[in-house]
C-alpha cells in the first residue's frame, strides 16, 4: 500500500474569464519513508497541488481525482473531519514566504499556542513548544519575540517548527529556501534532512532542482498544470526523458564544470485555454506532428513520462 497517492487530481480556479486549470490530471504515489520534490516554473501549478492536498482551496475547485493517505481517502471525507483529524496532525504545510506568514502583532509563543488550542492539544503547552523550538535549532528566547525582531532564517525555522508541532507524517514545504541567503539555505536543507531521519515524508515544492536533490527520493516535474515526468531522483538526474526536464536541468548554472548554460526560450501557455496535445509543443526542440495529439503517460523504469518520443 502506498503511503500517499494522488490520482488524476484536477484543481481549477474560477475567474471571470473562465476556469484556470492549475492542476490538470496529476498522479503520483510515494512509499513509506519516501519524499518527493515537485519542480517547475512559476505558474505551473506546483503550489496549487500542495494546497489541494491540504484542502485549503475551495471545495468546488477540486473537480476530480482522489488523494489517499495510508489507504484512506482524505479528499472524500467531510471537510470538518479533515480539519479535525488530518490537517496539521497528519499533513501539514510550510507556506511560501515565511517572512510574511507570521502575524506581526503576536509573539512567536502566542502563535504556537494558537495552533495547539485549535487542535485541542491536552498536554503541557510550554513543554511541547520548547521541545519543538529546540528541534529546529533555535533557543527559547525567540518565543518572547515578535516576528520583526527575527532574521529571515529564524522566521523560516519558526514556520517549519509550527508545521512540525503536531508530529505530522507528511509535510509540504513550499519554496522553503527561496529568498534566503545561501548559508541560511544550507541550514534549512540540513533541517529538512534531519526531519526525514526522524521518519517524516516531505513534499518539497521549488523551482530549484539543485535543492530537490538534497532531500527527495522521487521527483515530479510539472509544466502548465500537468505532471509531465515522474520518477526516482536517480533516474531524473542521470537520465531525464522529457525534453522539458532535460532543458530545465541544463538551465541550472553550475559551480564546477561547463560554464555554458542553456535556457528555455518562450513562455508557458496560458492555463485558461491550454493548447491541445503536448503543452510544451511550441518550446520543444524535438516537437513532431504527433505532439499535437494528447499525450498519454508512458511507463519508465521508476515512474512515467508524458512524451510521444517514448511511445
Amino acid at each position: 500500500m502506498a503511503f500517499i497517492s494522488v490520482e488524476n487530481l484536477k484543481t481549477g480556479y474560477e475567474t471571470e474569464k473562465g476556469i484556470v486549470q492549475a492542476v490538470d490530471d496529476v498522479s503520483f504515489s510515494l512509499e513509506n519513508g519516501e519524499s518527493i520534490g515537485i519542480a517547475g516554473e512559476s505558474a505551473c501549478g506546483k503550489s496549487t497541488l500542495g494546497l489541494s492536498i491540504m484542502r485549503i482551496v475551495p471545495d468546488v475547485s477540486i473537480t476530480s481525482g482522489d488523494i489517499t493517505l495510508e489507504g484512506k481517502s482524505i479528499l472524500k471525507m467531510p471537510k470538518s473531519e479533515f480539519a479535525k483529524n488530518v490537517r496539521w496532525k497528519d499533513v501539514s504545510m510550510v507556506f511560501q514566504g515565511a517572512m510574511n506568514s507570521l502575524d506581526p502583532v503576536f509573539t512567536v509563543e502566542e502563535q504556537f499556542v494558537e495552533v495547539l488550542k485549535q487542535h485541542r492539544y491536552d498536554g503541557d503547552y510550554k513543554q511541547k513548544i520548547s521541545e519543538i523550538v529546540n528541534s529546529v535549532g533555535l533557543t527559547q528566547d525567540v518565543l518572547k519575540k515578535y516576528p520583526h525582531e527575527l532574521s529571515g532564517g529564524m522566521k523560516q525555522r519558526i514556520v517549519i517548527a509550527m508545521a512540525l508541532l503536531l508530529k505530522p507524517k507528511f509535510v509540504i514545504a513550499d519554496e522553503p529556501t527561496t529568498a534566503l541567503d545561501v548559508l541560511v539555505q544550507a541550514q534549512i536543507i540540513n533541517l529538512l534532512k534531519k526531519m526525514k531521519k526522524e521518519g517524516m515524508s516531505i513534499m518539497l515544492i521549488t523551482h530549484d532542482l539543485a535543492i530537490i536533490s538534497e532531500v527527495a527520493e522521487k521527483i515530479g516535474i510539472m509544466y502548465a498544470g500537468k505532471m509531465i515526468e515522474f520518477g526516482s531522483a536517480a533516474e531524473i538526474y542521470k537520465n531525464p526523458k522529457h525534453p522539458y526536464t532535460q532543458a530545465l536541468l541544463k538551465s541550472i548554472p553550475r559551480l564546477r564544470g561547463d560554464k555554458v548554460t542553456n535556457y528555455i526560450k518562450g513562455n508557458p501557455p496560458s492555463l485558461m485555454h491550454p493548447p491541445q496535445g503536448c503543452r510544451f509543443y511550441d518550446r520543444c526542440p524535438q516537437a513532431m506532428e504527433k505532439c499535437k495529439k494528447d499525450v498519454p503517460k508512458f511507463k519508465t523504469d521508476s515512474g512515467y513520462v508524458s512524451c510521444w518520443l517514448y511511445e
Partner: peptide, 28 residues
Amino acid sequence: QALLDAISEPEPDNLLKEKKIRINEPLD
C-alpha cells in the same frame, strides 16, 4: 569556502549525505 560549501548542485548523491558547511553557528 563556507559560501561554496553551502551551494547545492543537482546531484542525486546529495540525498545520502549531510550538507557540511565549514562554519561555526552564527553568533549574531
